[in-house]
């Protein structure tokens, strides 16, 4: 049976892992390669690296890092953060990334999904959607949740699927950083209406939250950062609890 995935997310700045402490600032959290190795030994099913570097040097640093990670990690990993062209995607895949996550670039240019999935295959194109509740519906936001694009999240999710995204990484901007649980309603409406796999993100605080995202939100995978970084939840304990709740997981 296909198992539900647990995906730790690592924020990368200038080639180092950083951990956000509220909105105050970022703390250096060490070597991403070492952390990736630790997660993979603990039973992570995949990893996501999100590059938040803002300098011009960023691409080269990121490529170097992807090469290093792919040499030591024997599970799939996704790279995201400001990726805007087919060439950039090509370079990251050549360096050893299994998938790339596209976010604001595809809002500006939805054709990028089509071009990239035609050229590299849907299996390596993840569409990241940051959604915020606006009344009865959810809207797609960019720029870390500060700018409303006016796109309806459900309609956009359907479109990215049709254009060839192989997976959707859905973050609730209302829940992100709150540790108060995932936006189950948002997950459920997207999962039930979009035929590609769905990764739940934003709001993980407890084991129960992760179970609910899969059981009630119908997500296929759960992504989280701080709960794993700060060891608030250990991956083996989470997977055992999921299994005891009738959720199919990979136990290593």
């Amino acid at each position: 049976m296909l198992s539900n995935r647990i995906i730790p997310c690592l924020d990368i700045k200038n080639g180092r892992t950083v951990k956000g402490i509220n909105f105050e600032g970022l703390r250096d959290a060490g070597d991403p390669v070492e952390l990736a190795k630790r997660y993979s030994i603990e039973g992570a099913d995949e990893l996501v690296f999100l590059d938040i570097t803002a300098t011009n040097e960023r691409r080269k640093t990121l490529i170097d890092l992807v090469e290093k990670i792919s040499k030591v990690i024997n599970i799939p990993f996704t790279v995201g953060g400001g990726i805007g062209s087919v060439d950039e995607i090509s370079n990251l895949l050549k360096a050893g990334a299994d998938k790339v996550s596209l976010n604001s670039s595809i809002i500006k240019n939805p054709d990028l999904i089509t071009q990239a999935s035609d050229r590299f295959g849907s299996q390596c194109i993840v569409a990241a959607i940051d959604a915020k509740r606006t009344g009865e519906n959810w809207s797609v936001f960019t720029k870390a949740g500060t700018e409303n694009t006016g796109l309806d999240a459900l309609k956009w999710a359907i479109e990215v699927g049709k254009r060839g995204a192989g997976e959707i990484l859905l973050t609730s901007m209302d829940k992100d950083g709150t540790k108060s649980g995932f936006d189950i309603e948002l997950l459920k409406i997207i999962s039930e209406n979009v035929p590609v796999p769905l990764i739940a993100s934003g709001g993980a605080g407890t084991i129960e939250h992760c179970i609910d995202a899969i059981k009630f939100g119908k997500a296929n995978a759960v992504l989280a950062a701080s709960i794993f970084h700060f060891k608030e939840i250990e991956i083996p304990a989470l997977k055992n609890a999921m299994k005891n709740n009738g959720i199919s997981v990979r136990l290593t």
Binding site: M1, L2, S3, N4, R5, D45, S122, Q123, G166, E167, P195, V196, P197, L198, N220, A221, R250
Partner: peptide, 14 residues
């Protein structure tokens, strides 16, 4: 069939 299951088949399976 994407009416029956999510496509692609993505993840760990036995």
């Amino acid at each position: 069939d994407d009416k029956a299951v999510k496509v692609p088949h993505l993840g760990w399976n036995d």
